[in-house]
Design a protein around this nucleic acid. Structure first.
Lengths: 198, 198
DNA sequence: TCTCTAACTTACTTATAAGTAAGTAGGTAG
DNA sequence: CTACCTACTTACTTATAAGTAAGTTAGAGA
């Protein structure tokens, strides 16, 4: 049975590496974490990380890809439960709040865009893909919400989706210097600007 | 005459270092540029940069301080010319457009916040100061604009100022993956959400 | 003219990064 | 029981980072 997974620690170690990489990426950035930052906390050696992810680029790509997959599953969940546009928007905001409360993390997209000129092209491609996926879904959610008279705004849902995703990305970053209250001020205002009552 | 500045290249070199540091900071981030990235293009040696700025922290702080001073002079210019709130807002946006067109730079605040957990505390303090200065001025501009019936928005000018500065910060970053059009989409939408016609 | 100093260069040090080659332990398949 | 493979470790290499100590040079001041 060659399809049977080996009962070693592979899956665990690999997942643990990705968990840590994701956290380090959101907390410190791609350039600012090293293999040692991953291996030491896990009690393994540097080369063990290289075994699972030969290069840092590969590690970064795998981390981003998993993040994107989770995001897709998350929004798939809304489709299957017939969530209304407001619930979807709140779901998107909830992801950001989760990042905020979990050690002032920022959106992986934010860090990759900030470091854009210094990261490998494979990672840039991942960032572009994530960016598109978020924007596309937010855009659809806004359009549906307006049609159902839940959201009220001027202009196109394309533009509004750009604004909202950029604002939330900036909000998480701003929270680092200005505190969590700045983040919630932005969420509050975004909702007001959608004609939602508080 | 001990107050007379030496006619060496000091002022030029020092300013040239700061110019390059500022550009590298906005293009690649604080962690991703080295003394060599500064010395080689200027045709000087590594240690020459250390002569002017003993540590990278000192260089970073000086760069940020100069940026803040320029920002203060810029907004002072508006006060002296009795610019109306819309002109002020457009002036603020013009800074961002300038960054965008000048090699997809992002706001120094954006990069420092993204790298926040990895930078020295002195730099964090500079980031906080810049953040406060921008927010304070935007807040005042929005409040005045609303009083003069130029801007129209719900909620407090505090919240709206947070949203606008975060959105523009995010907009510059987003332009790197989504192109300049994403930036202008956000500006367009921000203006619509202030009740301004296009 | 002599001296001092600002603005450097030369030549290092120390630390840390990513990455690799070769070995090993323990379970698995035949 | 043997051969093999997965998941590692050990022990390196190479590159680059920030930072420093000791020189060098050109011009200004006395």
């Amino acid at each position: 049975m060659h399809t049977k997974p080996p009962n070693h620690a592979l899956a665990n170690t690999r997942a643990a590496i990705l968990d840590l990489a994701e956290r380090l990426l959101q907390e410190k950035g791609y350039n600012a974490f090293s293999y040692k930052d991953i291996s030491s906390p896990l009690g393994i050696k540097n080369a063990a990380v290289h075994y699972h992810f030969p290069t840092k680029t590969a590690l970064g790509v795998a981390t981003l890809r998993r993040y994107r997959e989770r995001f897709q599953e998350y929004i798939q969940g809304f489709e299957q439960s017939d969530a209304d546009p407001l619930m979807k928007l709140n779901g998107y905001i909830a992801i950001q709040i989760d990042h905020l409360r979990n050690g002032y993390r920022i959106c992986p997209l934010g860090i990759l865009e900030a470091e854009y000129n210094t990261i490998p092209s494979e990672l840039r491609a991942e960032a572009q893909a994530l960016e598109k996926e978020i924007w596309f879904w937010v855009r659809g959610t806004l359009a549906a919400g307006r049609e159902q008279n839940i959201f009220h705004f001027m202009g196109t849902s394309e533009d509004k989706a750009c604004l909202i995703s950029a604002a939330l990305q900036g909000a998480l970053q701003m929270a680092r210097t200005a505190g969590q209250s700045a983040f919630f001020a932005i969420v509050r205002q975004l909702k007001r600007d959608l004609g939602l009552k508080e």
